[in-house]
Write a protein that binds this DNA or RNA. Structure first.
Length: 332
DNA sequence: CATCGATGTTGAG
DNA sequence: TCAACCTCGATGG
């Protein structure tokens, strides 16, 4: 499941490959047939992302709102122009198969003549991008156009050279400009949207006026946009903050530190496509982290394992129907 | 092969 | 508070 960084990456791919182009829309699965018919043949005019929501605008004044939810995903295939701002730091998109990471770990066709090693001026490359093991075979077929529909595809958006298949979204709806703005208005600040100073102040105010525990506030999309269960656990650990601290009791400087850390982690996530939440890794640690997501985090998914710093068993508890991982000693 | 669980949200009760 | 949504990788037999 994508957290905010993935949604921004997807938005950039739409910006690069769809905005300014006429789009053929269809709903192979049928559950979005009416909506698809409404936008079919229109030109995509802009795209925006805030938190876990993405909005794709079509002429004239029709906004497609997408929320991937817990298992939604986009599959891109065909000929795509890779946004240079999201090429990975090591010169190649990741190769792991994490589900739901969408363009995180997006993959170049293994047989591909192209590599993203040359991060620079945008250039058109024939690549296949995928997100799920299921569609790997499809991408590797190559050549077939349009790509055969695999499984339940709610919405397919095609330019003459690129296809994007949407499956399993929580939300896939058309909105008027007013409705889109109303949706955005309910969302907390996103570091990549709007004024940085205003965003931080908004976050600080929202946290410090509530008695809700900070672990819940960080997951509240009205308080801050884009943080999910992984970033939540990791951010709390990085501040050595007890997850049960009421928002109003978190010192202001710590609240600000949380925000600035989110700014930083989101930027890293958007750029690399990975939720890398550990700093200053040794070469050995870095290799491990690249190879396995279990080695990228301080506490997430590490219940019962020794804390990387103090050796205490990482605790797991249910909070708001989600799993919370934390170190009882470091975050006392 | 079957079952589980997940980087999420909504809405019924 | 909890089921539903809807998909698929991981896990276990």
């Amino acid at each position: 499941m994508p957290e905010g960084h993935s949604v921004h990456r997807i938005a950039r791919q739409f910006d690069r490959n769809y905005v300014g182009r006429q789009v053929a829309a269809s709903s192979p699965q049928g559950r979005f047939a009416e909506g698809a018919a409404l936008i079919d043949g229109r030109v995509a005019t802009s795209v925006r992302a805030q938190g876990k929501q993405m909005f794709l605008e079509f002429d004239d004044d029709i906004w497609l709102r997408i929320h991937l939810g817990i298992y939604g995903a986009w599959d891109f295939s065909g000929e795509i122009l890779v946004d240079p701002t999201i090429a990975s730091a090591n010169g190649r998109m990741g190769q792991t198969n994490q589900r739901g990471t969408v363009l995180d770990d997006a993959i170049l066709d293994d047989a591909g003549e192209n590599s993203l090693a040359s991060i620079g001026a945008p250039r058109r490359t024939r690549v296949h991008v995928r997100m799920s093991e299921q569609t790997k075979g499809l991408a590797d077929e190559g050549g077939e156009w349009p790509p055969p529909v695999v499984g339940q595809v709610r919405l397919r958006l095609m330019t003459d050279i690129t296809a994007a298949d949407l499956r399993g979204p929580t939300a896939c709806v058309l909105q008027t400009p007013e409705e889109m703005l109303a949706t955005v208005a309910k969302l907390g600040p996103d570091p990549l949207v709007g004024d940085p100073v205003a965003n931080e102040e908004r976050f600080v105010r929202a946290v410090r006026k509530k008695q809700t525990v900070i672990a819940l506030l960080l997951m509240d999309q009205a308080v801050v946009s884009g943080i999910g269960n992984v970033y939540r656990a990791e951010m709390l650990y990085r501040q050595r903050l007890n997850p049960h601290t009421p928002g109003r009791d978190v010192p202001e400087d710590v609240v600000r530190a949380l925000w600035r850390d989110w700014v930083r982690l989101l930027a890293i996530g958007v750029e690399t496509g990975q939720m890398m939440t550990m700093d200053d890794l040794s070469p050995e640690q870095y290799r491990a982290a690249m190879a396995s997501r279990d080695d990228r985090h301080w506490v997430y998914h590490r219940a019962g394992l020794p804390c990387r710093l103090c050796g205490t068993e990482i605790a797991l508890e249910e909070l708001g129907a989600r799993k919370l991982y934390w170190c009882p000693r470091c975050q006392a």
